[in-house]
Simulated scan of single mutants.
Amino acid sequence: MADVATKHPMEDEVKKTEASSLVGKLETDVEIKASADKFHHMFAGKPHHVSKASPGNIQGCDLHEGDWGTVGSIVFWNYVHDGEAKVAKERIEAVEPDKNLITFRVIEGDLMKEYKSFLLTIQVTPKPGGPGSIVHWHLEYEKISEEVAHPETLLQFCVEVSKEIDEHLLAEEEEVKTPETPSLVGKLETDVEIKASAEKFHHMFAGKPHHVSKASPGNIQGCDLHEGDWGQVGSIVFWNYVHDGEAKVAKERIEAVEPDKNLITFRVIDGDLMKEYKSFLLTIQVTPKLGGPGSIVHWHLEYEKISEEVAHPETLLQFCVEVSKEIDEHLLAEE
């Protein structure tokens, strides 16, 4: 790694080895106001949130193997570069939390059309004696031919993403400082790897939620249609379920359905959850795994508690994980 405090003119940033001009390195520093730890955590702990910070550049990041921020894990990016929608499948090569450093190796996707190898290292260093940090980007690569350009535009892309993540992190800090009751409002998310197809899993909630009780009878006792049609926005469904050892009910309105994204959102409008929460939304999105069977089920819970005494719904998120696994087993048994 180059010293992050060292600045390099752009023309000096392409470093060619004696062996071949196909091999190169590009580096740049970006000054940010956010802390080094928080910026590092965006890539190491929650890269699936980067799209919220930089939606024009990053459309999504899915976990394909392993765990977020763990060496050997595989992540899959959807991004826009040079005006084109692109993808990158990357393996995490190195993580050093004490140095706020993470390295990704591109193993598949658009970059592999032009490069034999491509590594991206992001290291964030606190500014000495003041707030803010320096984000050091280090790209190391081997082109497949002389005709391929050095990735200066990708380095600029990294700079833009860094600045937008910085703004996002600062905005989050401002929300925490507001005099309202932000600790009552919360979000919980998790991913569940399944073997079934994304379409079939999505259809269980969008097309036949009354069959979920067959898949997970210990958790879900039934789902009835009260208004509208299955899987239609505005329709009302009524769930009977067991959570934390107690029989409970939930009346929910379908807020959003996006079949092309295998996404559905339910808003709880009546039932046991409304005793503790002013609002409660559950979004389920299922994404096919790249290059292989199986899918990733992403659960997103968004809620506002009625008081500080109410716990964040971690046990309900675990309930969602259990139901997902049982639905997966049910779908595989049907095949």
Rank of each mutant, 00 (worst) to 15 (best):
M1C: 06
A2I: 15
A5T: 15
A5P: 00
M10W: 08
D12A: 09
E13C: 12
E13H: 01
K15H: 05
S21P: 15
T28N: 14
A34Q: 00
A34M: 05
F43Y: 14
P47S: 08
V50S: 02
A53N: 00
P55K: 10
N57K: 15
C61T: 06
W68V: 14
G69H: 12
G72L: 10
I74Q: 01
V75S: 06
D82K: 13
D82W: 00
I92H: 03
A94M: 11
P97C: 04
F104M: 03
K113R: 14
F118H: 07
I122T: 14
P128H: 10
E140C: 10
E142A: 13
E147M: 02
V148I: 06
E152A: 14
L155W: 01
F157K: 02
E160N: 10
S162H: 04
A171M: 09
A171Q: 06
E175W: 03
V176A: 15
T178E: 11
E180M: 07
E180C: 07
V185N: 10
V185I: 15
G186T: 05
K195R: 08
S197M: 08
A198F: 08
H203I: 08
P209V: 12
K214T: 10
E227F: 12
V237R: 05
F238T: 00
D244V: 07
A250W: 07
K251T: 10
E258D: 14
L273K: 02
M274S: 02
K275H: 00
T283A: 13
P288C: 09
L290V: 14
P293E: 01
S295R: 01
L301I: 10
Y303L: 11
I306T: 09
I306K: 03
E309N: 12
E309P: 13
H312E: 09
C320G: 05
C320Q: 01
V321Q: 01
V323L: 00
E326C: 00
I327D: 04
E334A: 08
